[in-house]
């Protein structure tokens, strides 16, 4: 009862009006964005298929039909699900570890001005280093099992989340803090009610930037040394000149990262609802 009442009250003030039947229908008719997007995809696939078969380029660029067959083969011998699982576990654990450590360290160094000043040169030194160059070292440290990929994904995510949170948190309006102090806030309350909510915007931005890096970390790790995983399968297919299987692997990766980004988007819109509110009219 209350939930419904609340929602109704809010939507009357802030939300879009519900789409009418006609508008829903219109979204899928010719000329709508969705229709155009589907057309672009279809035309691209057609050109790809034709240039592969008619121009004899299948060896280099494979073809949609060839990729479809590679998918079938990959799925049929039961290896695909195992590979996907390996890569997702590596990237997933790396993502969780990297973003929580990166977020925490970035927040603390960003908020405590002195600490931030002290550590800034080190931070910049690490920032300029292409992190991928560390991958061989990680094989040495953590072996060729999953541990190595998890650590590498953690490292990449950590840096992305850390930098964004650190830079963002530093930009807090200090007047907001002194005003809160004037309103009676204790030190602890300034952390929990001002600093953390302020930093959460940057933390989310960092996490969004860091998410693809979890997958990059896992894949690069698998490229260098691995026994299974999607990245390993791509490299294996390349060494057999099996372009179709390479593309199949790439499409799986694309699918994984799109699902992750969509999930993140949902969480983010809920947590940062205040950023996306619309103007009220008329203004008073």
């Amino acid at each position: 009862m209350t939930a419904i009442g609340k929602r109704a009250g809010r939507s009357a003030m802030l939300a879009d009006p519900a789409p009418t039947g006609w508008q829903v229908l219109n979204r899928f008719t010719l000329g709508s964005d969705t229709a155009i997007q589907i057309t672009i995809l279809a035309v691209t696939l057609a050109i790809w298929q034709i240039s592969a078969s008619r121009l004899g380029m299948e060896f280099w660029i494979s073809s949609p039909a060839g990729i479809w067959r590679a998918f079938g083969k990959w799925a049929a011998n039961g290896v695909m699900l195992g590979d996907i699982r390996t890569t997702i576990i590596e990237a997933g654990i790396g993502f969780v570890l990297g973003s929580s450590i990166g977020g925490l360290v970035g927040f603390v160094l960003g908020w405590v001005r002195r600490l931030g000043d002290i550590f800034e040169p080190f931070v910049i030194a690490f920032y300029t280093l292409p992190k991928v160059a560390l991958a061989p070292l990680f094989v040495l440290w953590f072996g060729i099992g999953m541990g190595n990929k998890i650590m590498f994904a953690t490292l990449l995510v950590f840096f992305m989340v850390f930098f964004t949170t650190f830079q963002g948190t530093r930009q807090v309006d200090r007047d907001l803090v002194s005003n809160a102090r004037l309103l009676g806030a204790s030190r602890w309350q300034i952390w929990t009610k001002i600093a953390l909510p302020h930093a959460s915007v940057w933390l989310f931005a960092g996490i969004r930037i860091g998410l693809p890096y979890a997958l990059i970390g896992a894949i690069v790790g698998e490229f260098i040394a691995a026994e299974n995983g999607v990245g390993f399968r791509i490299r294996e297919a390349t060494s057999f000149y099996d372009t179709s299987a390479v593309f199949a692997g790439l499409i799986v990766l694309m699918g994984i990262s799109m699902v992750c980004l969509a999930a993140l988007k949902i969480i983010e819109t809920r947590a940062l609802r205040w950023q996306n509110v619309r103007d009220l009219t008329p203004a008073g």
Partner: peptide, 30 residues
């Protein structure tokens, strides 16, 4: 700091992530 005063300037000290109600609640939560 004198907690028995209210200080209002032309600067917007509202916390952007809090609703009007939650902003008004702030000093009482403190």
């Amino acid at each position: 700091i004198n907690h028995d005063v209210g200080y209002i300037t032309q600067k917007n000290y509202c916390l952007p992530w809090r609703t009007v109600e939650a902003n008004v609640r702030l000093p009482l939560e403190f």
